[in-house]
Write a protein that binds this DNA or RNA. Structure first.
Lengths: 145, 145
DNA sequence: CTTATAATTGAAAATGATTTTCAATAAGAT
DNA sequence: ATCTTATTGAAAATCATTTTCAATTATAAG
Protein backbone atom coordinates (compact mmCIF):
# COMPACT_ATOMS: atom_id res chain seq x y z
CA UNK A 1 0.00 0.00 0.00
CA UNK A 2 2.88 2.39 0.71
CA UNK A 3 3.98 4.45 -2.25
CA UNK A 4 7.23 5.67 -0.76
CA UNK A 5 10.03 4.08 1.22
CA UNK A 6 11.60 0.68 0.62
CA UNK A 7 9.24 -1.84 -0.92
CA UNK A 8 8.09 -4.71 1.24
CA UNK A 9 8.73 -8.30 0.27
CA UNK A 10 5.07 -8.56 -0.55
CA UNK A 11 5.35 -5.62 -2.95
CA UNK A 12 8.37 -7.16 -4.61
CA UNK A 13 6.50 -10.39 -5.12
CA UNK A 14 3.52 -8.61 -6.61
CA UNK A 15 5.87 -6.86 -9.02
CA UNK A 16 7.42 -10.21 -9.93
CA UNK A 17 3.99 -11.66 -10.61
CA UNK A 18 3.16 -8.75 -12.84
CA UNK A 19 6.45 -8.98 -14.69
CA UNK A 20 5.69 -12.64 -15.15
CA UNK A 21 2.60 -11.62 -17.10
CA UNK A 22 0.06 -12.24 -14.39
CA UNK A 23 -2.61 -9.79 -13.28
CA UNK A 24 -2.77 -8.39 -9.81
CA UNK A 25 -6.08 -9.29 -8.26
CA UNK A 26 -7.50 -9.00 -4.78
CA UNK A 27 -7.19 -12.72 -3.96
CA UNK A 28 -3.62 -12.79 -5.22
CA UNK A 29 -2.68 -9.83 -3.09
CA UNK A 30 -4.01 -11.61 -0.03
CA UNK A 31 -2.19 -14.86 -0.78
CA UNK A 32 1.08 -13.09 -1.57
CA UNK A 33 0.83 -11.00 1.58
CA UNK A 34 0.41 -14.09 3.76
CA UNK A 35 3.13 -16.17 2.12
CA UNK A 36 5.62 -13.31 2.12
CA UNK A 37 5.20 -12.69 5.81
CA UNK A 38 5.03 -16.27 7.09
CA UNK A 39 8.11 -18.18 8.09
CA UNK A 40 6.40 -21.47 8.53
CA UNK A 41 5.47 -23.80 5.73
CA UNK A 42 1.74 -23.67 5.05
CA UNK A 43 -0.53 -26.22 3.47
CA UNK A 44 -2.87 -24.92 0.77
CA UNK A 45 -5.76 -25.46 3.16
CA UNK A 46 -4.07 -23.60 6.02
CA UNK A 47 -3.32 -20.74 3.67
CA UNK A 48 -6.92 -20.79 2.48
CA UNK A 49 -8.17 -20.47 6.06
CA UNK A 50 -5.83 -17.57 6.78
CA UNK A 51 -6.78 -15.90 3.53
CA UNK A 52 -10.49 -16.15 4.19
CA UNK A 53 -10.13 -14.07 7.31
CA UNK A 54 -9.12 -11.20 5.05
CA UNK A 55 -11.03 -12.14 1.92
CA UNK A 56 -14.02 -14.29 2.86
CA UNK A 57 -14.95 -14.98 -0.75
CA UNK A 58 -11.55 -16.51 -1.50
CA UNK A 59 -11.71 -19.91 -3.17
CA UNK A 60 -9.42 -22.83 -2.43
CA UNK A 61 -8.86 -23.30 -6.14
CA UNK A 62 -7.42 -19.82 -6.38
CA UNK A 63 -5.03 -20.66 -3.57
CA UNK A 64 -3.75 -23.68 -5.50
CA UNK A 65 -3.44 -21.71 -8.71
CA UNK A 66 -1.63 -18.81 -7.09
CA UNK A 67 0.78 -21.11 -5.26
CA UNK A 68 1.58 -22.78 -8.57
CA UNK A 69 2.48 -19.44 -10.14
CA UNK A 70 4.52 -18.29 -7.18
CA UNK A 71 6.48 -21.52 -7.23
CA UNK A 72 7.06 -21.18 -10.95
CA UNK A 73 8.45 -17.69 -10.36
CA UNK A 74 10.71 -18.98 -7.59
CA UNK A 75 9.06 -16.95 -4.84
CA UNK A 76 8.07 -19.96 -2.80
CA UNK A 77 9.16 -23.57 -2.59
CA UNK A 78 7.37 -26.81 -2.01
CA UNK A 79 7.86 -28.77 1.16
CA UNK A 80 7.35 -32.49 0.77
CA UNK A 81 5.68 -34.47 3.49
CA UNK A 82 5.72 -38.17 4.23
CA UNK A 83 2.05 -38.54 3.37
CA UNK A 84 2.65 -37.13 -0.09
CA UNK A 85 0.89 -33.83 0.53
CA UNK A 86 2.68 -30.57 0.04
CA UNK A 87 3.21 -27.39 1.96
CA UNK A 88 4.70 -24.16 0.69
CA UNK A 89 7.30 -21.87 2.13
CA UNK A 90 8.96 -18.58 1.27
CA UNK A 91 11.86 -19.47 -0.99
CA UNK A 92 15.42 -18.77 -0.12
CA UNK A 93 17.91 -17.19 -2.45
CA UNK A 94 20.41 -19.54 -4.02
CA UNK A 95 20.45 -23.20 -3.26
CA UNK A 96 19.18 -23.98 0.18
CA UNK A 97 17.74 -26.90 2.06
CA UNK A 98 15.08 -27.28 4.66
CA UNK A 99 15.10 -28.19 8.31
CA UNK A 100 11.60 -28.54 9.69
CA UNK A 101 10.40 -28.71 13.26
CA UNK A 102 8.10 -31.70 13.56
CA UNK A 103 6.23 -30.05 16.38
CA UNK A 104 5.57 -26.42 15.47
CA UNK A 105 6.29 -26.48 11.75
CA UNK A 106 9.04 -23.90 11.97
CA UNK A 107 11.29 -24.01 8.94
CA UNK A 108 14.95 -23.12 8.88
CA UNK A 109 17.04 -23.02 5.76
CA UNK A 110 20.65 -24.00 5.50
CA UNK A 111 22.87 -24.19 2.52
CA UNK A 112 24.27 -27.37 1.17
CA UNK A 113 27.49 -26.27 -0.44
CA UNK A 114 29.33 -28.83 1.61
CA UNK A 115 27.33 -31.54 -0.02
CA UNK A 116 28.12 -30.62 -3.57
CA UNK A 117 31.49 -32.36 -3.40
CA UNK A 118 29.88 -35.38 -1.86
CA UNK A 119 27.31 -35.59 -4.64
CA UNK A 120 30.13 -35.38 -7.14
CA UNK A 121 31.78 -38.43 -5.63
CA UNK A 122 28.50 -40.32 -5.70
CA UNK A 123 28.17 -39.45 -9.39
CA UNK A 124 31.68 -40.71 -10.07
CA UNK A 125 31.17 -43.98 -8.25
CA UNK A 126 27.81 -44.77 -9.78
CA UNK A 127 28.30 -43.48 -13.31
CA UNK A 128 25.16 -41.37 -13.00
CA UNK A 129 24.81 -37.78 -14.08
CA UNK A 130 23.11 -36.11 -11.17
CA UNK A 131 20.51 -33.59 -12.22
CA UNK A 132 18.70 -32.79 -9.04
CA UNK A 133 18.62 -33.54 -5.38
CA UNK A 134 16.17 -33.41 -2.64
CA UNK A 135 17.13 -33.00 0.97
CA UNK A 136 15.00 -32.27 3.99
CA UNK A 137 15.86 -32.67 7.65
CA UNK A 138 13.27 -33.20 10.34
CA UNK A 139 13.63 -32.55 14.02
CA UNK A 140 12.68 -30.37 16.94
CA UNK A 141 13.51 -26.70 17.20
CA UNK A 142 15.04 -25.18 20.28
CA UNK A 143 11.67 -23.97 21.59
CA UNK A 144 9.93 -27.32 21.11
CA UNK A 145 12.35 -29.80 22.61
CA UNK B 1 9.98 -73.54 -3.25
CA UNK B 2 13.31 -75.27 -2.63
CA UNK B 3 13.58 -77.13 0.66
CA UNK B 4 17.35 -77.47 0.60
CA UNK B 5 20.24 -75.17 -0.24
CA UNK B 6 20.59 -71.50 0.69
CA UNK B 7 17.29 -69.70 1.09
CA UNK B 8 16.39 -67.09 -1.49
CA UNK B 9 15.75 -63.49 -0.53
CA UNK B 10 12.11 -64.12 -1.18
CA UNK B 11 12.13 -67.03 1.28
CA UNK B 12 13.84 -64.89 3.89
CA UNK B 13 11.21 -62.21 3.48
CA UNK B 14 8.39 -64.71 3.81
CA UNK B 15 9.98 -65.97 7.01
CA UNK B 16 10.23 -62.39 8.28
CA UNK B 17 6.58 -61.81 7.53
CA UNK B 18 5.65 -64.94 9.43
CA UNK B 19 7.84 -64.03 12.37
CA UNK B 20 6.12 -60.67 12.32
CA UNK B 21 2.86 -62.46 13.01
CA UNK B 22 1.48 -62.34 9.49
CA UNK B 23 0.09 -65.29 7.58
CA UNK B 24 1.60 -66.54 4.38
CA UNK B 25 -0.97 -66.37 1.63
CA UNK B 26 -0.85 -66.86 -2.10
CA UNK B 27 -1.14 -63.14 -2.94
CA UNK B 28 1.55 -62.25 -0.42
CA UNK B 29 3.90 -64.83 -1.87
CA UNK B 30 3.45 -63.29 -5.30
CA UNK B 31 4.04 -59.74 -4.08
CA UNK B 32 7.07 -60.72 -2.01
CA UNK B 33 8.56 -62.65 -4.90
CA UNK B 34 8.29 -59.67 -7.23
CA UNK B 35 9.59 -57.09 -4.78
CA UNK B 36 12.50 -59.28 -3.69
CA UNK B 37 13.69 -59.81 -7.22
CA UNK B 38 13.19 -56.33 -8.65
CA UNK B 39 15.89 -53.70 -8.49
CA UNK B 40 13.75 -50.87 -9.73
CA UNK B 41 11.29 -48.96 -7.62
CA UNK B 42 7.72 -49.99 -8.40
CA UNK B 43 4.49 -48.13 -7.94
CA UNK B 44 1.67 -50.07 -6.28
CA UNK B 45 -0.12 -50.12 -9.62
CA UNK B 46 2.91 -51.40 -11.51
CA UNK B 47 3.35 -54.12 -8.91
CA UNK B 48 -0.33 -54.95 -9.19
CA UNK B 49 -0.01 -55.41 -12.95
CA UNK B 50 3.04 -57.63 -12.57
CA UNK B 51 1.33 -59.63 -9.85
CA UNK B 52 -1.79 -60.23 -11.88
CA UNK B 53 0.21 -62.02 -14.52
CA UNK B 54 0.91 -64.67 -11.91
CA UNK B 55 -2.23 -64.33 -9.79
CA UNK B 56 -5.05 -62.91 -11.91
CA UNK B 57 -7.43 -62.61 -8.97
CA UNK B 58 -5.02 -60.38 -7.06
CA UNK B 59 -6.57 -57.17 -5.74
CA UNK B 60 -4.92 -53.77 -5.72
CA UNK B 61 -5.95 -53.34 -2.10
CA UNK B 62 -3.94 -56.38 -1.15
CA UNK B 63 -0.93 -54.90 -2.87
CA UNK B 64 -1.21 -51.74 -0.78
CA UNK B 65 -1.69 -53.72 2.42
CA UNK B 66 1.22 -56.03 1.78
CA UNK B 67 3.53 -53.16 0.89
CA UNK B 68 2.58 -51.49 4.15
CA UNK B 69 3.57 -54.58 6.12
CA UNK B 70 6.80 -55.11 4.23
CA UNK B 71 7.77 -51.51 4.85
CA UNK B 72 6.95 -51.86 8.53
CA UNK B 73 9.24 -54.90 8.69
CA UNK B 74 12.01 -53.00 6.95
CA UNK B 75 12.05 -55.23 3.87
CA UNK B 76 11.26 -52.45 1.45
CA UNK B 77 11.47 -48.69 1.49
CA UNK B 78 9.33 -45.93 0.11
CA UNK B 79 10.52 -43.78 -2.73
CA UNK B 80 9.03 -40.32 -2.74
CA UNK B 81 8.10 -38.65 -5.98
CA UNK B 82 7.55 -35.01 -6.83
CA UNK B 83 3.86 -35.58 -7.47
CA UNK B 84 3.42 -36.96 -3.97
CA UNK B 85 2.84 -40.55 -5.05
CA UNK B 86 5.03 -43.33 -3.76
CA UNK B 87 6.99 -46.19 -5.18
CA UNK B 88 8.60 -49.01 -3.27
CA UNK B 89 12.00 -50.55 -3.49
CA UNK B 90 13.94 -53.39 -1.89
CA UNK B 91 15.44 -51.93 1.26
CA UNK B 92 19.13 -51.71 1.85
CA UNK B 93 20.83 -52.77 5.04
CA UNK B 94 21.93 -49.96 7.32
CA UNK B 95 21.37 -46.39 6.42
CA UNK B 96 21.40 -45.78 2.73
CA UNK B 97 20.13 -43.22 0.30
CA UNK B 98 18.66 -43.35 -3.13
CA UNK B 99 19.87 -42.28 -6.52
CA UNK B 100 17.19 -42.69 -9.16
CA UNK B 101 17.44 -42.65 -12.92
CA UNK B 102 14.80 -40.26 -14.21
CA UNK B 103 14.60 -42.16 -17.46
CA UNK B 104 14.53 -45.90 -16.69
CA UNK B 105 13.72 -45.85 -13.00
CA UNK B 106 16.88 -47.69 -12.02
CA UNK B 107 17.68 -47.21 -8.36
CA UNK B 108 21.15 -47.19 -6.88
CA UNK B 109 21.87 -46.95 -3.19
CA UNK B 110 24.75 -45.16 -1.61
CA UNK B 111 25.54 -44.59 1.98
CA UNK B 112 25.51 -41.25 3.62
CA UNK B 113 28.04 -41.66 6.41
CA UNK B 114 29.85 -38.61 5.10
CA UNK B 115 26.78 -36.54 5.70
CA UNK B 116 26.34 -37.41 9.33
CA UNK B 117 29.01 -34.92 10.38
CA UNK B 118 27.45 -32.28 8.19
CA UNK B 119 24.04 -32.83 9.74
CA UNK B 120 25.66 -32.49 13.16
CA UNK B 121 26.98 -29.08 12.25
CA UNK B 122 23.58 -28.00 10.97
CA UNK B 123 22.08 -29.10 14.27
CA UNK B 124 24.64 -27.08 16.19
CA UNK B 125 24.12 -23.93 14.16
CA UNK B 126 20.34 -24.04 14.25
CA UNK B 127 19.73 -25.34 17.75
CA UNK B 128 17.55 -28.11 16.36
CA UNK B 129 17.66 -31.72 17.39
CA UNK B 130 17.67 -33.60 14.14
CA UNK B 131 15.52 -36.72 14.23
CA UNK B 132 15.32 -37.79 10.64
CA UNK B 133 16.49 -36.91 7.20
CA UNK B 134 15.38 -37.47 3.74
CA UNK B 135 17.71 -37.48 0.79
CA UNK B 136 17.16 -38.53 -2.77
CA UNK B 137 19.21 -37.77 -5.83
CA UNK B 138 17.82 -37.75 -9.35
CA UNK B 139 19.73 -38.11 -12.56
CA UNK B 140 20.51 -40.30 -15.51
CA UNK B 141 22.22 -43.66 -15.26
CA UNK B 142 25.12 -44.63 -17.45
CA UNK B 143 22.91 -46.52 -19.88
CA UNK B 144 20.39 -43.73 -20.28
CA UNK B 145 22.53 -40.68 -20.86
C1' DC C 1 -13.19 7.84 -19.33
C1' DT C 2 -15.42 4.04 -21.99
C1' DT C 3 -15.00 -0.27 -24.30
C1' DA C 4 -13.03 -4.55 -25.67
C1' DT C 5 -10.56 -8.71 -24.64
C1' DA C 6 -8.47 -12.09 -22.44
C1' DA C 7 -7.13 -13.55 -17.74
C1' DT C 8 -9.05 -14.73 -13.44
C1' DT C 9 -12.40 -16.13 -10.25
C1' DG C 10 -15.11 -19.54 -7.37
C1' DA C 11 -18.62 -23.26 -7.30
C1' DA C 12 -19.28 -27.68 -8.58
C1' DA C 13 -17.80 -31.76 -10.67
C1' DA C 14 -13.98 -34.76 -11.93
C1' DT C 15 -9.75 -37.15 -11.02
C1' DG C 16 -6.58 -40.34 -9.13
C1' DA C 17 -4.07 -42.34 -5.39
C1' DT C 18 -4.98 -44.44 -1.29
C1' DT C 19 -8.07 -46.25 2.53
C1' DT C 20 -12.12 -48.21 4.57
C1' DT C 21 -16.02 -51.34 4.77
C1' DC C 22 -17.79 -55.77 4.70
C1' DA C 23 -19.11 -60.37 3.66
C1' DA C 24 -16.72 -64.44 1.96
C1' DT C 25 -12.53 -67.22 2.24
C1' DA C 26 -8.50 -69.51 4.00
C1' DA C 27 -4.30 -69.94 7.28
C1' DG C 28 -2.74 -71.88 11.24
C1' DA C 29 -3.80 -73.20 16.04
C1' DT C 30 -6.23 -76.75 18.84
C1' DA D 1 -11.33 -82.01 11.31
C1' DT D 2 -12.61 -77.88 13.41
C1' DC D 3 -12.40 -73.44 15.14
C1' DT D 4 -10.80 -68.80 15.39
C1' DT D 5 -9.12 -64.98 13.44
C1' DA D 6 -6.45 -62.83 9.74
C1' DT D 7 -6.86 -62.01 5.04
C1' DT D 8 -9.01 -61.33 0.72
C1' DG D 9 -11.13 -58.53 -3.13
C1' DA D 10 -15.08 -55.72 -4.74
C1' DA D 11 -17.23 -51.66 -4.03
C1' DA D 12 -17.64 -47.44 -1.73
C1' DA D 13 -15.45 -43.72 0.74
C1' DT D 14 -11.69 -40.24 1.37
C1' DC D 15 -8.95 -36.55 0.49
C1' DA D 16 -5.75 -33.62 -1.93
C1' DT D 17 -5.59 -31.70 -6.12
C1' DT D 18 -7.30 -30.47 -10.91
C1' DT D 19 -10.63 -29.43 -14.41
C1' DT D 20 -14.78 -27.28 -16.24
C1' DC D 21 -17.44 -23.38 -17.02
C1' DA D 22 -20.12 -19.32 -16.70
C1' DA D 23 -19.62 -14.91 -14.42
C1' DT D 24 -16.40 -11.30 -13.15
C1' DT D 25 -12.60 -8.06 -13.51
C1' DA D 26 -7.78 -6.30 -14.69
C1' DT D 27 -5.62 -4.16 -18.15
C1' DA D 28 -4.89 -2.70 -22.97
C1' DA D 29 -6.87 0.02 -26.61
C1' DG D 30 -9.55 3.68 -28.28
Amino acid sequence: MSTTGSPTLSDEWLATLQEGGYRLTAPRRVIVEIMASCERALSPLALFDLGRKIQPRLGLVTVYRTLEKMEELGLIQRVHQADGCHMYLRAARGHQHLLLCENCGKAVLFDGDEMTAFFGSVARKTGFTIKDHWLQLFGLCEACK
